[in-house]
C-alpha cells in the first residue's frame, strides 16, 4: 500500500468534459467476473474448514483415516458428542460461561462507552495521555501480566469468585477505541443544542449519543462477547474450582497430551461454536444493516 493512495486528495480530479458520463456500475464487466470468481473462491476457503470440522465431529477414526479426501463422513456416528456429554458437567459449564461472558459484556459496554464519550466528546487537559493510557493496555500480551495479576487477585481475595472473574475484564481498550472512533463521527451540533437546553453530560451521553450508536454497540457487544466466550486462559487463572469453570476450559481437556480421538475433540469445538454462531447471527443484522445511518469513523 503506497503512501500516495492513503493521502487524501483535496478534490476529485476534473477530467475532460467530453468524456462520457456514465454510472459507475456500467463499466468493466470482465473485471466483474474476475471479482466474483475471487469472492467465490474466498467463500470456499472461509467456509470449508467449518464444514469439515462439523463433518469430522461425526466421523469414526477408521473412516477419517481411510478417506482423508472426503469432506463429509461416509458413515455418521454420534460417539464424539457422546464422549463430550458423558465427561463434562455440561449445563454447569454453559451457565458459568453465559454468566461470565454475558455480565462482563454488559459492564464492558457501559464502561467503554462512557470512557469513549469523554475521549471523543469532551475537551480536557490530559486527553491525549488518557487515550494513550487506554491504548497502551492493548499492547501487552496477557502472558506478561499474568503473574502480577494473579498476585493482585490474591491480595484482593478475588481468586475463585465471580467478581474476580468479571471485574478485571469489565472494560476493554478495544471497545473504548472502537466507540471513540464511532462517537467522533456523530455531529457535534447535536450535543451543542442539547447543552444549550441545559442537558447534563450524562443526559447527552444517554439520550443522544447512545441511541445513535446502536451499530457500534452491537459490534462491540458481539466482539467482546465472543472474545470472552473464547477466552480459555483468564477463567482458568482466576478460578481453580470446578464449580466456576467455563466451557472452553472444560473442552480444553479433550485436547490434552495424548489425544487419540479426533471426533471428540472436534465435537467439543463445534459445541463451543454454537452459542457464538447464535450471537453472531443475532447481532449481524444490527451491525451490518444498521451501520448505514452513521458511518464508523
Amino acid at each position: 500500500m503506497s503512501t500516495e493512495t492513503l493521502t487524501p486528495a483535496p478534490a476529485p480530479p476534473r477530467t475532460a468534459p467530453d468524456q462520457r458520463r456514465q454510472p459507475i456500475r456500467g463499466r468493466g464487466n470482465g473485471l466483474d467476473i474476475v471479482k466474483w470468481v475471487a469472492v467465490a473462491a474466498g467463500v470456499i476457503v472461509a467456509v470449508v474448514p467449518f464444514i469439515w470440522m462439523i463433518g469430522t465431529s461425526f466421523r469414526s477414526e477408521a473412516d477419517l483415516f481411510a478417506h482423508p479426501a472426503s469432506l463429509l463422513p461416509t458413515q455418521w456416528t454420534l460417539h464424539g458428542y457422546k464422549g463430550v456429554w458423558d465427561q463434562l458437567p455440561f449445563l454447569r459449564l454453559l451457565l458459568n460461561t453465559v454468566v461470565f461472558a454475558g455480565v462482563t459484556t454488559i459492564l464492558t459496554l457501559l464502561f467503554d462507552s462512557m470512557c469513549a464519550y469523554a475521549l471523543a466528546r469532551l475537551d480536557f487537559r490530559g486527553k491525549t495521555i488518557a487515550f494513550w493510557l487506554v491504548l497502551v493496555t492493548l499492547m501487552v500480551p496477557f502472558q506478561v501480566t499474568l503473574i502480577p495479576v494473579f498476585i493482585e487477585l490474591f491480595h484482593l481475595g478475588w481468586l475463585n469468585t465471580y467478581h474476580g472473574l468479571i471485574i478485571p475484564r469489565a472494560t476493554s481498550a478495544f471497545g473504548i477505541f472502537l466507540f471513540r472512533q464511532f462517537f467522533i463521527s456523530i455531529p457535534r451540533e447535536l450535543d451543542e443544542a442539547a447543552r444549550l437546553d441545559g442537558a447534563s453530560h450524562f443526559k447527552i451521553y444517554r439520550s443522544i449519543i447512545l441511541p445513535l450508536s446502536k451499530p457500534a454497540i452491537a459490534t462491540v457487544a458481539l466482539l467482546n462477547f465472543t472474545a470472552l466466550w473464547n477466552d480459555l486462559l483468564w477463567p482458568l487463572v482466576v478460578t481453580s474450582s470446578p464449580d466456576l469453570q467455563t466451557l472452553p476450559a472444560g473442552l480444553a481437556l479433550f485436547g490434552g497430551q495424548h489425544v487419540t480421538d479426533h471426533a471428540v475433540l472436534l465435537a467439543g469445538a463445534v459445541i463451543s461454536l454454537i452459542p457464538i454462531a447464535i450471537a453472531f447471527f443475532l447481532a449481524q443484522r444490527f451491525f451490518v444493516a444498521g451501520i448505514s445511518n452513521t458511518g464508523l469513523k
Partner: peptide
Amino acid sequence: QPWDTIQQK
C-alpha cells in the same frame, strides 16, 4: 486442567 495452564498458574 490443561498442563499449560498448570504450568502458568
